[in-house]
Amino acid sequence: MTDLTLKDFMPKPETGNVILLLNEIRHALRHLAETGEPTTIDLSGIPMTKAETEEFEAALGTGEVHAEIDAGGPSEVIETSFAGVWRVIHRASEEMTLARYIEVTRIPEILVAHPSDMRAALTRLEARLELSSEEEAL
């Protein structure tokens, strides 16, 4: 007969969500490959222990792209070792994480240059060139 201790009645420290999440990513990646439709998973609503978070990140690994964005605070976009699967982390400061996402997509939206920004950039560039030509004329 095995002696039971108090520990045997305690909840296990693992949530078991790592394998579930990896399976969800597998389905999302298959969907992306077959239809081109992206999927985003919000990690903040999925409980994981610190050890599980590390296990999850190690399972995804890192790929070829690692981008840092400075827009309303720092953000990081990390391609995992699985092409099309990205980790996107938004922060208010270096210490404060606001949101963590897994994006299964060709390229995360946050990296793409947006039409409104491009229009504003064009206006600025044109103004600068006009100023330069005026200066040259003087």
Binding site: D42, S44, G45, I69, A71, G72, G73, S75, H90, L98, A99, Y101, E109, I110, H114, S116, D117
Partner: peptide, 13 residues
Amino acid sequence: RRAFLKYCATTAS
């Protein structure tokens, strides 16, 4: 637009 999208993403989260 990036900063705005980030704001919307963090608000949703």
